[in-house]
Design a binder for these strands. Structure first.
Lengths: 297, 297
DNA sequence: GTCCGTATGTATAAAAACTATATGGGACCT
DNA sequence: AGGTCCCATATAGTTTTTATACATACGGAC
């Protein structure tokens, strides 16, 4: 079956499953096909997925049957929610995400400076070719209030839930560090790599954060939290790269003293604060020019 | 131009722009077209976007020219990063996001219980049709340790950065509240709506959170933070629905006393804590059965 | 009830897209 | 020099898609 036909059938199934129904007109609008072709696609879909689509004469469109069994689509709720998220964040021309009439949705966004297109392209090119690259970087270090040129050898990307950074060998300080993409203002010349990504121990080594429900919650509430986090016997382990540990702890609210915080907003605590503190020391997080960076090796 | 051809040209452009080059083989693998068709597409692309693609005989593939000007694609770095994010989160069969060889990437994830497919479908159907719905909901209220059936009239979705909730009229308490999707365990019968979304004042009214750099940062650091958040004269306003205020403040770290926290991790503070506190009271956030919910009207 | 607008479905011929197959050329490696 | 891998192009045949036309069904306005 042709790629374009398969995409149309997938679209049909998506609309049937999530949006309650589908029309010839939907196909025509989304793919620019002719009326007879849209009819053929609908007929073809019914052949390939019998029992899924029924024509509701009164509503004048096809609706999903009771025993709907997806054939072309992965019926993952998170996939649908991802489409809703990109719609709510204004990505893509509405419609490209296949949502017919997206429900009202809002996202707790925090506005951040845009990533520079040329900067990202340059970093990607250097990363692909295993080269180093000069960047004009705006650090947070009080010692360097203005952007300065520095050479890095990028090898990976990280996302803390708000912003992307690039994980790279810093030629100046001789460490692996995180550089926030929005703070890369310009790029300069390519050069030889300083160190390869395999040498970044903090990136490749992992630590298990063991979490439990906040002890100040009632037994019933603790049970709910345990289910939320998929805990077994009231414990769950989150395996994290040392290079990402700081960000994960921050997201989980475990960076500062979690036990003393209001359990109604802070649902979990670390089983052993000492183990977490030791792991953070191993990650050697300093608060320096990259905002938060992990130096090592 | 046909939809399928346009997608192929868009793909060509994407690979040229972000991934450094493209091949006939890439086209064949991604879309299942024949060898001559892939050649045609490449020729067609060069006609439509002259000067963008050049054949590198030594590398045996097309590479982007120096003065690349996208024709079929929005060259948005965030769009590329979104693809990387969905790849790193394991969405979609690798390749469906058009990344050739995704760089190593990690995301500070927090594992959460999956959303139930039938529950989301049921809520969507009720929302579309303006109906109410019975849900089996696991609340955090100590008074209700076990899941209970309750009737809601959903009208919108919200995302706090971790989890999705549905904003709905609660028939039981006569308030608009947030219900976390992962805690909806089952759905029951449809019914008449309780209140329409237009009556949800906390959803439709907005508040401006005015933020400034953390005063304990040095002047240079404050300038960097100001640029990060797009501040003018050291101030920026974030317009937020009252119904989302709690989540936004939590994400920004402004829920608890921000001024007393380490400015190296907490970069911003609210200009007026009193104004924020008043807005939170207006939002009438209570910590009850939905975890955090806003009741009102 | 009748008319109208808007759906759907299908039949036909014509156009367009695509495939299979074959041929030729250039660059690189052994 | 030969093999390999990639590109481009030509031809004929197949498949997909379009354009056009016509028949049917439902719901609401008159």
């Amino acid at each position: 079956m042709k790629w374009s036909v398969e995409r149309r059938l997938e679209f049909l199934e998506f609309r049937l499953f999530w949006e309650g129904g589908v029309n010839r007109a939907d196909l025509i609008e989304m793919f620019g096909v002719s009326v007879p072709q849209a009819s053929k696609d609908l007929t073809l879909y019914q052949e390939k997925a019998p029992g899924n689509a029924f024509y509701d004469k009164s509503a004048r469109r096809y609706v999903a049957g009771a025993g709907f069994r997806p054939v072309f689509l992965d019926p993952d709720p998170d996939a649908w929610l991802l489409r809703l998220r990109s719609a709510a964040e204004g990505f893509a021309d509405a419609g490209a995400n296949w949502l017919a009439a997206p429900p009202e949705a809002d996202i707790a966004l925090t506005p951040r400076r845009k990533v520079d297109t040329a900067a990202l392209r340059g970093i990607l090119a250097a990363l692909r070719e295993g080269a180093s690259l000069e960047i004009l970087y705006q650090s947070m270090s009080p010692a360097r209030p203005d952007p300065v040129w520095r050479r890095i050898s990028p090898h990976a990307f990280g996302y803390d839930g708000f912003r992307w950074h690039v994980r790279a060998w810093c030629h100046e300080t001789g460490k692996f560090k995180d550089f926030l993409l929005p703070r890369v203002l310009d790029i300069g010349g390519r050069g030889a790599a300083g160190a390869s990504g395999e040498q970044d121990r903090l990136w490749h080594d992992h630590f298990d954060i063991v979490i439990t429900p906040h002890p100040k919650l009632s037994a019933g509430q603790q049970a709910v939290v345990a289910r939320d986090y998929g805990m077994v016997d009231g414990r769950a382990a989150l395996t994290t790269r040392y290079a990402m540990l700081f960000y994960v702890l921050k997201r989980l609210g475990l960076l500062e003293d979690a036990r003393s915080r209001d359990p109604r907003t802070q649902h979990i605590v670390a089983e052993s604060d000492a183990a977490v503190a030791a792991a953070l020391r191993r990650a050697n997080f300093e608060f320096d020019e990259a905002g938060q960076t992990g130096g090592g090796s």
